[in-house]
């Protein structure tokens, strides 16, 4: 795996909210790499800090510690204007709720090209229109839709507009924050297919944030499981599904509803209790590699157990 190029490197990322005196740590010591051209899934329940990580990468939330490196360049904390502009150009975001993330009072034309306006890209009007219609066709919408308002579209189409808006900047890296949670099952499939098609065509890299492991499995190459601001487990997605180690990952897996009535009735729902580890001062948990590419947050006793379970 050494030949793969790291596009994004997150190291010991820490994000806090609230006042200096009473800080609330939303993300604590999270480290992961994202390779060029892959899809990295970030899974956790609401309040786990998964969205905050995405927002910290794109410089919306200031980081309290650690670094984010993009293309070999540190982009967290204080950076030069040029770097800031590079981040704005090359990293884009797709939001969760297409009903709320589009400006109701603006036409699609403006919504899609807002990024261009913000960057003062000095395009002529015809060039801009050309770009908008190309972005709209890329997501399977008609260029004529540019003159319409968001309320004229269905949820799935609105999410496509949201994707077009990020594509117009020709980004290399897209942070998709629960892009399909608010959509119907049948529309979900369309949007997921579109995202993988765009990835193949343009060599995009995705950070895919979701709470539903079943969706993430389908689209991600690797998955990180996050709980209360800490990464619990990270592995290739098939490996994570075949050999989940951390009890929280197992709980998440057991919560996936399966289209199989008999199996569902026999299934036992696992509930994760953070107290089940019994961590002690002498043996604090750490972020350790159990097998190549498979990381887990555990103490030494648990690591031995996990390694045994993997048959090593």
């Amino acid at each position: 795996m050494a030949e793969r190029e790291k596009l994004l490197e997150v190291k010991d990322l820490k994000v806090t909210f609230g006042s200096k005196r009473h800080p609330f740590t939303a993300v604590d010591g999270v480290s992961f790499d994202i390779y060029r051209g892959e899809t990295f899934g970030l899974v956790g329940e609401s309040g786990s800090g998964k969205t905050t990580i995405g927002r910290a990468i794109i410089r919306v939330n200031p980081v309290a510690g650690g670094t984010v490196t993009y293309n070999g360049q540190v982009i967290s904390g204080k950076v030069s204007r040029a770097v800031d502009r590079q981040v704005i150009e090359q990293i884009q975001m797709i939001f969760q709720d297409p009903m709320a993330s589009l400006n109701e009072r603006a036409k699609v034309d403006y919504i899609v090209s807002e990024g261009l306006y913000n960057l003062h890209s000095h395009l002529s009007e015809s060039e801009r229109q050309e770009k908008v219609s190309r972005a709209l066709s890329a997501v399977g919408l008609l260029p004529e839709f540019a003159s319409r308002f968001p309320h004229e579209f269905s949820g799935g189409q609105r999410q496509r507009i949201g994707i077009a808006r990020s594509l117009i900047m020709d980004p290399q890296f897209i942070i998709a924050d629960e892009p399909i949670s608010a959509l119907d099952v049948s529309i979900r499939a369309q949007v997921l297919n579109l995202m993988s098609k765009l990835q193949k065509e343009r060599g995009l890299t995705y950070l895919f944030i979701a709470h539903d492991l079943s969706v993430v499995r389908f689209i991600s190459d690797r998955i990180g499981v996050i709980y209360r601001g800490k990464l619990m487990e990270l592995a290739e997605s098939e490996q994570l599904f075949a050999h989940p180690l951390h009890p929280y990952t197992k709980a998440l897996l057991s919560a996936i509803p399966m289209p199989d009535p008999v199996g569902e009735r026999e299934k036992k729902l696992l509930v994760y209790d953070p107290a089940c580890h019994g961590y002690t001062e002498q043996d604090p948990p750490q972020w350790a590699e159990v097998e190549p590419g498979h990381f887990v947050w555990a103490d030494r006793r648990e690591l031995d157990k996990y390694r045994k379970a993997l048959g090593q």
Binding site: V185, A189, R217, S237
Partner: peptide
């Protein structure tokens, strides 16, 4: 679930991401 008869039921079941195969497109109606 085990013996659906209507094509629409087939389509709804087919588009579940749980049944998706990586590398292939998900079924979409």
């Amino acid at each position: 679930f085990y013996d659906p008869k209507h094509p629409y039921t087939w389509a709804l079941l087919s588009s579940l991401p749980q049944l998706g195969v990586k590398g292939q497109d998900l079924y979409s109606i």
